Amino acid sequence: MSIDVSLLARICEAPGAPGHEKAIRQLILAELDGLADEVSTDNMGNVVALKKGRSSKKKVMAAAHMDEIGFIVTYIDDNGFLRFNPVGGFDPKTLTSQRVLVHGKKDILGVMGCKPIHIMTPEERGKNLKIDDYFVDCGRTKKDIEKIVSVGDFITRWAPLEEMGDCVTVKSLDNRLSVFLLLETLRKMKKSRKKPAYDFYAAFTVQEEVGLRGANVAALEVKPDFGIGLDVTLAVDVPGTPSHQKVTSLGEGAAIKLMDSSVICDYRMIAHMKAVAARNKIKWQPEILGAGGTDTAALQRMVPGGSIAGAVSIPTRHIHQTVETAHKKDIEAGINLLTACVAELDQGKWAL
């Protein structure tokens, strides 16, 4: 298992709430140096790197979103505590005891607070907490906090990457793991000196967590013939979950998406991915996700006539928490599968 854990850590730990992806975008642009023939950034902040293929008859686009779920400051109370709205999907119970970064005139540390159980009434103890029950405590007075923070500033979660057995755990593997995968695929292409079958557009998209917004724009611009979404997927292989609900399992390989709530993957792309995995002895598992969607839907639809679309997903436990966990072997399998799929697209059977 040889993945660059140090690079993955830097990618995951960089802040980038939807619409405020500057820090992670700068990191991506730095890492792209020398890996592509052309690199461009659009008005929304998407980064698209072109790796020219053996043929320019077709266009291939793989998309990994760079944004992470976060919050926006809505109010500063008389004691300096911050109230906020979520930007992206949150399960409120995951906020308890979390550290955050508030991105004001400078980044400052804060902690998520709520009413302590010691002074809750019996009725309150039996209720699930809501987003409105939480506040951010930065350890500053209203006067001091207002020198740094304003309504409209963004907040992201803070949790550094740690290795845990054969796994890595950190906030925002969703979807920085796929940013890492896409960068490492380009790096692998460069090292092998083997060009992709067709012109390959590696898209690092924005604002996926609030509705695939960046991918819509990027797909409209590139107009790919083939689209490959890259994201994490649920691994619910944990105690208390029936085996038929686990979706995927850690350590069983990269996932080939069959469908989710936003997309039914093209059967031709599914067949191609399976064939590529078999030829290259890459471990994989099928993914059917009952709820949730990815940039794959945008790549499939936001193109005149549609694209032939599929997705490579990385099984991940505890998604949308600060302890998201993935297996190194699955990450490596994802890199190998994407690289081979793009290199061998000219071997696929694409007739309807």
Rank of each mutant, 00 (worst) to 15 (best):
A275E: 12
Q285E: 11
C265T: 07
I314V: 14
L289G: 04
T294R: 01
I288L: 14
H272N: 05
I314Q: 01
H327S: 12
W284P: 02
I319W: 07
P304R: 06
H272Q: 08
R317W: 05
H320Y: 12
R279N: 13
E287L: 03
I264D: 04
I270T: 08
G292Y: 04
T296I: 09
I282W: 06
V312T: 10
A298V: 02
S307L: 06
V312P: 00
T296C: 11
I308M: 13
I264P: 01
L289S: 05
V323Q: 13
A278V: 13
D260Q: 07
A326G: 10
D266H: 12
A309Q: 02
I256R: 00
K274D: 10
V323K: 13
H320A: 04
Q285P: 04
R279Y: 09
I288G: 06
M259I: 09
R279D: 14
M302G: 00
K257M: 13
G305A: 08
K283T: 14
M273F: 11
T294K: 03
Q300P: 08
Q285W: 00
R268D: 07
I319R: 07
G293W: 08
H318F: 15
L289D: 01
I264Q: 11
N280L: 07
K274I: 14
G305C: 10
T294H: 02
G310P: 00
K274S: 12
I314C: 04
T325S: 09
